[in-house]
Amino acid sequence: MEIIAAITAGILVSIGVWLLLDRNLVRVVLGVVVIGNAINIAVLTGGRFNGTTAPFTSAAGVPELASNPLPQALVLTAIVIGFALFVFALAVLKRTWELHGTTATDRVTEVAEDDAPDLAPPALATPSAPADREGRR
């Protein structure tokens, strides 16, 4: 089973990288999700699939062939983290579309290499009032 899982993860990660290299930011975001899935499989594979029951114990004792609980705990949290990061990436995607009017990756990212803009002159009127406001939440 480990081999199948490893190959699956490898294929998934290949597809993920392929998506990351796409020219559309939407697919890049999906690429992150796919790679995340692949890595979760890989981490679980690291714990081996020897178990035949889920890792639950009871007062009666520890089951003979419980699956390895540690990678499961690691992956569980990795899934939630991955989701949080995915939503952040989605937010970036959405903002990019709103600001740049395109989701073509290179056309977006090349803007970062533009010359630095001039700084706005300091506001003369009420210098402290609006700028000192902590952001709304």
């Binding site: 990351l20 790679i35 890595i39 981490v43 990678p71 992956v75 970036v92 990019t96 740049h100 990212t109």
Partner: peptide
Amino acid sequence: LAGTVVYLFLNLLATLLFLLAAGLVYG
């Protein structure tokens, strides 16, 4: 935002590699 896009995806890839490596170190 454009700079963030580069920063975000390259660092995500790095951190995913790290996750994989950490899991495999245990494995």
